[in-house]
Design a protein around this nucleic acid. Sequence first.
RNA 1: CGGGGCGUAGCGCAGUCCGGUUAGCGCACCUGGUUUGGGACCAGGGGGUCGCAGGUUCGAAUCCUGCCGCCCCGACCA
Length: 491
Amino acid sequence: MANKLTSRAEDYSKWYNELVMQADLAQHSEVKGCMVIKPYGYAIWENMRDVLDKMFKETGHQNAYFPLFIPKSYMSKEAKHVEGFAKECAVVTHYRLKTDELTGEVVVDPDAKLEEELIVRPTSETIIWNTYRNWIQSYRDLPILINQWANVVRWEMRTRLFLRTAEFLWQEGHTAHATKAEAIEESEKMLHVYAKFAEEWMAMPVIRGVKSESERFAGAEDTYCIEALMQDGKALQAGTSHFLGQNFAKAFDVKFADKTGKMEYVWASSWGVSTRLMGALIMTHSDDEGLVLPPKLAPIQVVMVPIYKNDEQLAALAAKMDELSAKLTAKGIRVKVDLDDTKKPGWKFAEYELKGVPVRIAMGPRDLENGSIEVARRDTKEKMALQMEGAEEVIEALLNKIQENLFLRSSEFRTNHTTEVNDYDEFKQVLNSKGGFVSAHWDGTAETEEKIKQETKATIRCIPLDAKEEEGKCIYTGAPSSKRVLFAKAY
RNA sequence: CGGGGCGUAGCGCAGUCCGGUUAGCGCACCUGGUUUGGGACCAGGGGGUCGCAGGUUCGAAUCCUGCCGCCCCGACCA
């Protein structure tokens, strides 16, 4: 039957969609722009969530939960914030349905109109800062270091599974500080937490940077970001951390008395990553056979498939597999022994490749005789024969090796797709041929950025934190520039 | 909002142009048997308001009108 995926070369975006659905990660829901995250996809998200949650707690944060609904009036308190989100807000206007007596249909009860409409949160700065007002009186109440895991809704015109959906899952950290320096330090710290997670767990190299003014979060003084490069040469914003200044404190009148008794506005940060990371994970490593998962996040790290001719063999294989499985489990490795009798081995091989399981072990009658197993790795498709005795050590090392290899491979790809250019023609040429990040001088103005965007569809992904001082001329206007910024077409 | 596509079994589709018995195919599913080292095979079986509403007609999945929904491309997008 062969459920072949469209190849990446043929149609990258089709490949992505088919992969997400065939690997059982998610499907479109009946509601436009929304998705159903299926158990296998959700298991990956849970792994991400658990790791991140631990990292947040290790950096001193606590979880809390704020309401889904935000009174409309809150949204308008911070001018830039409302401007940025107004066009994509879902609004609750009524609180009751009733059965229409004439048609028998369920209709909105016009008598149940809300006095003040409620906004379904697109992000929670407003409701959280409105709450913080009552939590903060003194410098002794600071800092407040809170994170929440939640769903948010942004009524996007065009959506894509995981990359941009109308409703998505995320975490949002909201912190309050006594000083500007401390708030900046916090937003930078969390950026590095994200970068560490992306690189060490997702095996996805990221650029740490700062957004240009026009790409900044609505209501932020500065937006830090991690930017990743996908296999089709487009960039993906994988996480953001904002220094909010005193903007929300002023909008919601959140002041504290400092040590001298003087009233000051509170300084803020907010930071978030979402289920978009799933999209990033998929597009960083996967191939034409399906998903490729880094071992550290794979719901199943090792799958065992028996090959047999009769029940007797199956029983013998199952016993051996359970034995090895127990040894692997003892090492904290997530193992599945697939004894399903209704699927053939070949079918299972293809299926687990599609699902990105890092290591597959096959065991048949020959192995029973020889005390061996066949080990196949998903990232390189290599197969090798191993003695079953002591195999758990080799497999444990192999999982680490796969994790490393994925990071090396994607880092190499990014290096090969990052190009320094010094004039506009070259800039356009690189964008249209190999894509990727294009490192170029820019005069620092929003006008130039906008023009380049209009002409090439490339945006400034970020000003890398590690950009070195270098005299140069803006590729568009020729005006002087002191450092290079990264341009790319982006998701 | 503009352009394109689609809506027929759980999934993927054909049939629609040119109306005509009982709406078909592949996968999946169920039963039995043979199989099992890279998506098995044979035989039998179950499953349908053809997106919705109206119209034309002796007769509509098919023609006409209206509506609804989703997907893709674009505009838009902390």
